[in-house]
Amino acid sequence: MDNRNCKRYRDEINKMELTLPAISVNEGMARAAVAAFCAQLSPSPTDLADIKCAVSEAVTNCIVHAYKHKKGNFYITVNLYSDKTVRIEVLDKGCGIADVRRAREPLFTTDAAGERSGMGFTVMENFMDRLTVSSREGKGTLVVLTKRLGRKTAEEE
């Protein structure tokens, strides 16, 4: 999507594309698959756990919010770069988000009845280096998560 950004990274060393139906059993499947793919960069256990959690959040949002438990697919693309940067795209063609800024606020949720905590985007933001969310109502949502492995997070410093 944003080609200019990719230039910052050194060479792309590997790439994975994954299409999965938006059913809840695929939350575990998606995070396990992405973690297995990222293992070739020898991530620390903490980095790997951060990535798994962020992917789980993005994928759950596709299932719960974008398609509201109806039929649809979500699309994951993972790029690995030689400077140990991981870039993960999670795309859906669901309902989209009317106000992205508001959606990203901690504790904001449109599904309180479903016992959502409204902390999904906050988790993604805190566990990764960067989160971008692009969305169009009625078209879908693209979430991009990036992390340079082996770097300390703001909390740890």
């Binding site: 789980s56 016992e115 959502r116 905590s117 902390m119 988790v123």
Partner: peptide, 9 residues
């Protein structure tokens, strides 16, 4: 493993 669904729970 626990993500934000655990917080809701």
């Amino acid at each position: 493993f626990m993500d934000s669904a655990g917080l809701g729970l």
